[in-house]
Structures are given as C-alpha cells and as structure tokens.
Design a binder for these strands. Structure first.
Lengths: 109, 109
DNA sequence: TGGCTTCATGGCCATATTGCCAAATAGGCA
DNA sequence: TGCCTATTTGGCAATATGGCCATGAAGCCA
C-alpha cells in the first residue's frame, strides 16, 4: 500500500470512526430529521451533556455536522446527508447476518 | 433512546467499526476487485500475517466478507458490495473538508 | 510419518476511546 | 456589574483496540 493510498484510507477511516458509535449514529439519524440543540440531544439520548457535546464535536471535526450558535444555545445539523445512504446497506447486512444465524443454528433443518 | 433503537444503533456501529480502519478499508477495496488469499493481502498491505488475519476476521465477523478454504490457502471475498457505495460519499466529505480548510486558512482573502 | 506451507489464535504491551465529574467559557439579562 | 443558563474543556479511570511475537492447527506432499 503506497503512501497516497494509505493517506486516503486513513481519511476515510477517520470519517467512518466518527460514525461508528451507537450514540453518534442515533444523533445523525435525529439530525437528519431536524436540527437540534445540545440540550435536546442530551435529553433524547439520556447521557451527560458533556458526553453529548464531545460526541457532537467528533462528528463536526470530520465535517459531518455543522453548528450554529443562537443565543446561548448551539444548534447542530447534518452537513452531509449522503451518509444516510449508508444505513440501508447496514440494515441489509444486518438482515443477512440474521439469516445466516438461522442457517448456522439449524443447519440440517 | 429506547432499547430497540439502542440495539439497532449498536448493530450498525459494529459494522461501521469493522470498516473504520485504514488497512481494512484497503482490503475491502482490493477484495471488491477480486478475491485474495491471506498471503496476497499480507504482501499488499505490508504487515504481519497475523495482523492481516485478525483484520479479516473482524470483517468476516460482521458479515462483510466470506472466506473459502482451498488447499492450505484461505480466499476472502467481499460478501456485501453495497458497502462500496460508502466510499463516494466519504470522498465527497473529504473534498468538502479540504475546501473548508482553505476558507478557514484564508478567511479574509 | 515427517516436514513444509498457510493461516489462525493467545499473550502481551502500547495506545486510543468512552463517559463521568468538575471547572472554565460564552451569551443574555437584571 | 453580577448572575444564570447553555455549552465546552480538562482530567481521570475503565475499557477496547492494534500490532507484533510465539505458538497452534490444518492441509499437502515426499
């Protein structure tokens, strides 16, 4: 793997890593529907606000989210809706995995 | 976030996590072109074979790869080509990020 | 059987990630 | 100015991840 390829794969990995967390995936899903402030997301997820703030920072750092300060609140929104396309593929993989499980559990049926 | 949503997000995160590594992304890319045995991938990546084997196991564990043993070799292939659709979105995000960088570096220009 | 090749696994250490609390910062308002 | 609210940041402990080496397991062949 040459250096340029390595660099490109690292850049891709950074974005995927930012997505690869249950809480962050949930927030991306919600922000696809409408923008939300940190307090709202904190309430929806049910975690410490500092935790949510850090998760949002990660998504913003890789360019997936945008934020806008309005008064004392900060509203986040989905900056790259194309990531939503991932989810249908993920669901398909999950579905296939379920089927495979069945075959593994009942091989001779 | 209710329990069912939590579980679904965790399942999605597991798959994305398996993808979110430079070496694993590279191998997915290569396996999209043609199946490869472990030795070939080891050579292409330039890492220890045990490391490559573990990376492949992770991708297989989440259902993205299939393997087939032929003689003493094990050939891996991409089981879910839909993940390739991710990459164009990732490239777009990377491209956008580059542009933003320029604006950030030269805000008044 | 013995030896060789290919691959997987276990162990270990270094590093990264997560999530909480506490403290700092920023904005609005009396 | 001083206080209150919303958010971010620093610090820390627990846990997970990554990569190498050494070892184990499986298949082929003489």
């Amino acid at each position: 793997m040459d250096a340029a390829t390595q660099a490109r794969m690292e850049a891709r990995a950074r974005i995927l890593k930012a997505l690869a967390h249950p809480t962050r995936l949930f927030m991306v899903d919600e922000l696809a529907k409408q923008e939300r402030c940190v307090a709202e997301l904190t309430e929806m997820v049910g975690a410490d606000m500092s935790t949510i703030s850090k998760h949002l920072s990660q998504l913003k750092a890789v360019g997936l989210l945008e934020d806008e300060k309005r008064g004392t609140q900060v509203f986040y929104r989905l900056a790259r809706p194309c990531v939503l396309n991932f989810f249908s593929c993920l669901e398909a993989v999950m579905q296939e995995n379920l089927q495979q499980q069945i075959f593994l559990v009942r091989p001779g049926a």
